[in-house]
């Protein structure tokens, strides 16, 4: 290779020629696009940080521990929205993981072959439905159902647990969690299905050969092999649920209070921003909302990176196993 060759390739020993004008122009354009992608990542953080500077310097640490979000008093605490975000996402995943995993097990282990591909593709199509449609459906169908049928029953039979002792209004944490779980299920199912389908046949055959029943094959041979993929899929689903706006905004009631029960109204960080940012007239309000965006971004990115690390470790492990 010529020293200082500006066009090193994956096969550098091959090319020895002077760069042409067209080549240089093309490379500059590509570099600009590449810089734009990296700059976008940096700009997201910097711009949000700049917009929220007033809230960060004025409110300081009390922003993270504050239990009141009050434009009237010009005091802003993220805790109610943060708790709402974590509770709704956690419940949504608690519902979506067992159902999605169960469906993925059925699709890969038990379903007749002709059924597997169409049902799998159908579920992937459903994952593409926009969240505003899920939210609209939740508001028109699920909220009345919750208010008149489900929640009165929950209060009667499970009121003693303390989780369900509010007036049944339908616009609450529970309904938001249910809509989020409906949205998360296709994601969890699709990723789990992919990792279960990637388990080598030999793994299953070995278990069958020593006399394991269908369930024992799944439980002891298939799931352990696909575990990281399933976990990564669930974490990706969690990331999406945490950042979801429209589906939650329409059904959660949008009150920035710490929910006293699952039937109490609440809000999430994303819903709070969507609800208030364009009407933020108090001097500290918009900066406080931008800071909320910064916090949401940090949580979502941390979770996303975590899931990718699990996945890349999994791929590295499989590569090593294959060699």
């Amino acid at each position: 290779m010529t020293p200082g060759n500006p066009f090193p390739t994956s096969h550098p020993e091959r090319i020895h020629r002077a760069p042409k004008v067209g080549d240089i122009t093309f490379l500059i354009l590509l570099l600009l696009a590449t810089i734009a992608v990296v700059a976008l990542m940096v700009a997201l953080v910097v711009v949000l940080l700049y917009q929220s500077r007033l809230a960060i310097t004025t409110l300081g640490f009390s922003y993270l521990t504050g239990r009141v979000w009050g434009p009237e008093t010009n005091v802003y605490g993220i805790l109610p929205a943060l708790i709402g975000t974590l509770i709704t996402s956690a419940i949504a995943l608690l519902i979506a993981i067992p159902l999605g995993l169960g469906a993925a097990i059925f699709l890969t282990q038990h379903a007749p072959t002709w059924l597997r591909a169409p049902v799998g593709q159908l579920i992937e199509l459903l994952a593409a439905i926009p969240s505003i449609i899920y939210g609209f459906w939740g508001l028109i169908v699920l909220v009345p159902l919750e208010r008149t049928v489900v929640e009165p029953k929950l209060i009667t039979y499970l009121g003693w647990t303390g989780l369900f002792n509010s007036t049944p209004i339908g616009l609450d944490i529970l309904t938001a969690s249910l809509v989020l779980s409906v949205m998360a299920i296709p994601t969890v199912t699709a990723v789990s299905r992919d990792s279960l389908a990637a388990v080598p046949r030999s793994q299953k055959e070995a278990a069958i050969a020593i006399g394991a029943t269908d369930w024992e094959v799944t439980r002891r041979a298939v799931i352990p092999y696909a575990r990281s993929g399933i976990i990564a899929g669930s974490v990706l689903g969690l990331g999406r649920a945490l950042g979801e706006t429209m589906a939650v905004l329409l059904v959660i009631g949008n009150r920035p209070i710490i929910p006293s029960s699952l039937l109490s109204s609440g809000t999430t960080i994303a819903a709070l921003i969507a609800n208030e940012l364009t009407e933020a007239f108090q001097p500290l309000e918009a900066p406080a909302l931008f800071e909320a965006g910064l916090i949401l971004l940090s949580i979502a990115l941390a979770i996303n990176v975590g899931a990718r690390l699990i996945l890349s470790r999994l791929q590295a492990g499989q590569g090593a196993a294959a060699e």
Binding site: L44, L48, Q51, L242, E244, L289, G293
Partner: peptide, 11 residues
Amino acid sequence: SGVPSIVAGAF
């Protein structure tokens, strides 16, 4: 790809 859409809007 993990950036929440509302954050993209705020940005």
